[in-house]
């Protein structure tokens, strides 16, 4: 029996890209769950029209909370492998094959996407911020990773069940890594393509967000 692969896409005000993202995933025969995180635009309708299972947070909670809701739905729908995917069009569905194969062959329970394992054009300000995040992760968790804040990840079902994220906003990325280190889950990294467009850059995280993430990490459980 083929494993059921489900993609969870948290989306906040992504009406411009969500349709294309969902189509890209469906073309690769992946079932899609979009969590509209209280968007003010037509994200919900676009996602629904594109054929995704679409959930809606009635108010904006943050990416971490949206991911958690989506993962919960994916587990309820019987997903065997759960992939997290960005709604802003930065990720490629064609990378998912590489992402899920270590789980299918039982080499790892978690696969983390890494933009640094592949030739990617990364703007310098992002490069600097990402490298700082990598150092922070190495310092706080001991994990030696090449990319710590990549939206593309894959989890086996039993890890997804045990994950239970408490960080509602952007600190969830670090929280996931912390839990990997704590629970000693097996993981590998897989190269992924990241397309930086003016749109995705405007939606992305800047240096100031880094401080907000640290605040959440230190002062929220």
């Amino acid at each position: 029996m083929p494993e059921k692969i489900m993609a969870v896409v948290p989306a906040y005000n992504e009406e411009r890209t969500i349709g294309a993202v969902v189509n890209d995933l469906i073309r690769h025969s992946i079932q899609v769950i979009v969590v509209d995180d209280g968007s003010d635009d037509n994200t919900y309708a676009r996602a629904l029209a594109s054929g995704a299972v679409t959930l809606r947070h009635i108010v904006n909670l943050g990416q971490g909370a949206a991911l958690s809701t989506g993962i919960k739905r994916a587990l309820l729908m019987g997903g065997d492998i759960i992939v997290t995917f960005d709604a802003d069009g930065q990720c490629r569905a064609s990378d998912i094959d590489n992402l899920v194969s270590p789980i299918l062959s039982e080499k790892a329970d978690i696969v983390l996407g890494s933009r640094f394992l592949k030739e990617n054009k990364i703007p310098f300000s992002r490069y600097l911020l990402l490298k700082l995040a990598i150092l922070y992760t190495r310092f706080t968790t001991g994990l030696k990773l090449t990319d710590t804040h990549n939206g593309l990840r894959a989890f086996s079902r039993h890890v997804a069940e045990a994950l239970s994220l408490t960080q509602p906003r952007m600190a969830h990325a670090s929280e996931i890594l912390k839990k990997i280190a704590l629970n000693k889950w097996s993981f590998v990294e897989a190269p992924t393509t990241i397309l930086y467009t003016p749109y995705s850059l405007s939606k992305g995280q800047s240096g100031w967000h880094g401080f907000k993430i640290l605040f959440d990490l230190w002062f929220r459980k």
Binding site: V35, G38, V53, L55, R56, H57, I58, V59, L61, A65, S68, T69, K72, R73, L76, T166, P168, F219, R220
Partner: peptide, 24 residues
């Protein structure tokens, strides 16, 4: 006050999540 706010935020998350899953 801060602790209380975090608790309230966590409660809101639970409610909103439940609503999202329920309406599905």
């Amino acid at each position: 006050l801060f602790s209380k706010l975090v608790k309230i935020e966590n409660d809101i998350i639970k409610i909103v999540r439940e609503l999202a899953l329920k309406s599905q």
